[in-house]
Amino acid sequence: MSKYFGSAYQFGTLGGILSLVAFGVMSWLQPDPTNLNLIFGYVITPVSIFLALKYFKDYSNNGYISFSEGMSVGFVTYLIIGLISGLGIWIILLIFPDFFESIKASKLEVLESSRETIVSQVGEESYQSTLTNVKAMVPFDIALNDTIWKIIPGLFFSIIISIILRKNPN
């Protein structure tokens, strides 16, 4: 089992920690670091998956990797990234409730400034529903959103990278 997932544990943990560091650094740069952290996740997730698959292929599997092995190692990698990042963000927001409130206020401000555009595109009822949901937001919601947006793209990155690195013994 460690043959298959040793590299996934290493690079998934590294990616999750880097994502948390990015969240912390971006929180000093602006009041709502969540959107930039998602963008950073689109960079760190494929890099971590690539490194985990390349390491597995070169050092654990004699230079070969099948598509299914790539998908398995990739799955564990992006799952670990998402869980570490989401859990860390949740803990940070619980420890610093004022920080959470500033993120929430920023999201409400963006929603209010975009009101006309949103209402014209999806209607007043959808806008009011979104406004109610943002007002009821808790720290776990932000953490869950971050986790989901690390896992979903991770699936697609794993597919692409597994195809690129695939090499079966003949």
Rank of each mutant, 00 (worst) to 15 (best):
residue 145 N to T: 12
residue 168 N to P: 01
residue 162 S to I: 04
residue 12 G to T: 02
residue 132 T to W: 05
residue 103 I to M: 07
residue 42 Y to H: 12
residue 5 F to P: 01
residue 164 I to A: 07
residue 16 G to P: 03
residue 62 N to Y: 15
residue 152 I to V: 14
residue 63 G to C: 10
residue 166 R to F: 03
residue 85 S to W: 05
residue 92 I to Y: 12
residue 161 I to N: 06
residue 6 G to T: 07
residue 43 V to F: 15
residue 102 S to P: 05
residue 5 F to V: 04
residue 90 W to F: 13
residue 86 G to I: 02
residue 33 P to G: 08
residue 10 Q to H: 12
residue 125 E to H: 00
residue 150 K to C: 06
residue 119 V to E: 06
residue 93 L to R: 02
residue 34 T to F: 11
residue 44 I to E: 06
residue 26 M to A: 15
residue 65 I to G: 11
residue 129 S to H: 10
residue 10 Q to P: 00
residue 138 V to R: 14
residue 100 F to C: 07
residue 149 W to N: 10
residue 46 P to W: 10
residue 1 M to D: 13
residue 101 E to D: 15
residue 88 G to R: 01
residue 156 F to E: 05
residue 128 Q to A: 09
residue 26 M to W: 09
residue 130 T to R: 04
residue 56 F to M: 02
residue 39 I to Q: 13
residue 127 Y to S: 00
residue 91 I to C: 03
residue 23 F to V: 01
residue 157 F to M: 09
residue 16 G to F: 02
residue 95 I to F: 09
residue 20 L to V: 08
residue 122 V to N: 08
residue 126 S to K: 09
residue 135 K to M: 11
residue 34 T to G: 04
residue 12 G to D: 03
residue 14 L to C: 04
residue 14 L to W: 05
residue 169 P to D: 03
residue 84 I to P: 07
residue 124 E to A: 08
residue 32 D to W: 07
residue 96 F to W: 14
residue 167 K to N: 09
residue 143 A to K: 02
residue 134 V to E: 13
residue 39 I to C: 13
residue 82 G to R: 05
residue 158 S to I: 03
residue 164 I to Q: 02
residue 135 K to L: 10
residue 59 Y to H: 13
residue 30 Q to K: 12
residue 142 I to D: 05
residue 169 P to Q: 05
residue 42 Y to P: 04
residue 39 I to A: 15
residue 117 T to K: 14
residue 98 D to G: 11
residue 85 S to G: 11
residue 21 V to I: 15
residue 83 L to W: 08
residue 117 T to Q: 15
residue 73 V to G: 00
residue 30 Q to A: 12
residue 80 I to C: 08
residue 170 N to S: 10
residue 27 S to I: 04
residue 25 V to E: 05
residue 97 P to F: 13
residue 64 Y to C: 12
residue 105 A to F: 13
residue 71 M to G: 01
residue 3 K to P: 06
residue 60 S to F: 10
residue 157 F to W: 15
residue 41 G to H: 06
residue 108 L to A: 08
residue 79 L to N: 08
residue 78 Y to R: 00
residue 130 T to C: 00
residue 120 S to G: 07
residue 159 I to T: 11
residue 4 Y to M: 09
residue 81 I to H: 11
residue 111 L to M: 08
residue 23 F to G: 02
residue 163 I to L: 14
residue 92 I to L: 09
residue 124 E to R: 04
residue 109 E to P: 08
residue 148 I to L: 11
residue 8 A to P: 03
residue 35 N to F: 13
residue 28 W to M: 14
residue 6 G to A: 13
residue 11 F to E: 00
residue 8 A to G: 02
residue 7 S to Q: 04
residue 75 F to E: 00
residue 107 K to D: 10
residue 138 V to S: 10
residue 35 N to K: 14
residue 125 E to S: 06
residue 31 P to F: 14
residue 10 Q to L: 14
residue 149 W to G: 03
residue 68 S to T: 15
residue 6 G to N: 12
residue 48 S to T: 08
residue 166 R to P: 07
residue 70 G to W: 01
residue 84 I to W: 02
residue 62 N to A: 15
residue 124 E to D: 08
residue 75 F to W: 03
residue 115 R to I: 01
residue 67 F to N: 04
residue 24 G to Q: 04
residue 128 Q to G: 04
residue 51 L to N: 08
residue 132 T to Y: 12
residue 158 S to H: 12
residue 29 L to P: 12
residue 102 S to G: 12
residue 49 I to T: 06
